[in-house]
Simulated scan of single mutants.
Amino acid sequence: MTNSVNRRARASQKRRRLTAAAARVLHEQGVERTTLADIAREAEVPVGNVYYYFKTKDELVRAALGEHSAQLDDLTGRLDRLPGPRERLRALVEAWVEQRDVAARYGCPTGTLTVELDKRADGTLDAEAGAVIRQLLDWAGRQFRELGLAEPDDLALTLVSAYQGMSLLANALRDPDVMTRQGARLLRWLDSLRAPESSH
């Protein structure tokens, strides 16, 4: 009994390592250039093990998207512990800016994957990548709604669009300072937003 529990725990741990490695390697190299051997090397497991857990590269891409979603859940879960929605939104922008070196080198993990998947002929995984961005939009929309601001979903769209834009430009220009400067602008913008005065 104990042996089978240990085996299952080890298998789960190995799958988790492969999934995290897939998310990192796909972000750094892109889908087309990444091989299963690259992911095995990053996860420090024999390449044959990759096939045991993931039969195709698409299954690995799907797992990587799941990893992005889990990382976003983890981040927003931490942000949700902050006292108010404005602090949460500010902390989100600060978290983006902290990743400026990664963004300058590889772009936004989810954004770059979404664009790449959209260009594939079969077009099966792009909607799943879009769902991770939708998850972020929904979370940001809730914060703006809690602030009592008009058109909270449009404000969320503005915020996430700004992040995607600054990640893209930081990457294109290989300049992390783009993230720093645009992050500061976003923080000032967030501070300037005020709920309309009550009419009574």
Rank of each mutant, 00 (worst) to 15 (best):
T56R: 13
V102S: 06
W96G: 03
L149S: 09
N49C: 06
D73G: 07
R120I: 02
V93L: 04
L187M: 11
Q29Y: 07
L187I: 15
A104H: 06
R78D: 08
L36D: 04
A9E: 08
S199P: 08
P196T: 04
L82P: 04
L147W: 04
A63P: 03
L168Y: 14
R90N: 04
V61Q: 06
R7V: 07
E42Q: 15
R62W: 05
L173P: 02
Q164A: 13
F54E: 00
A40K: 06
K119M: 14
G77I: 07
P46F: 11
G30C: 13
A127G: 10
Q99Y: 04
R78I: 03
M1F: 08
E197S: 09
R88G: 00
V97S: 00
T112P: 01
A40P: 02
L149A: 09
T56W: 09
E116N: 11
L92A: 06
K119Y: 12
P46S: 15
A64V: 03
A20F: 06
S12I: 03
Q143N: 09
S198Q: 13
P85K: 05
N49V: 04
G111K: 01
A170S: 10
V132A: 04
T2G: 15
T124F: 05
D122H: 05
T34H: 01
Q135L: 14
L169T: 11
S4M: 12
A162S: 15
L159F: 07
L65G: 00
A40S: 10
T112I: 14
R88K: 10
R90T: 09
L60R: 00
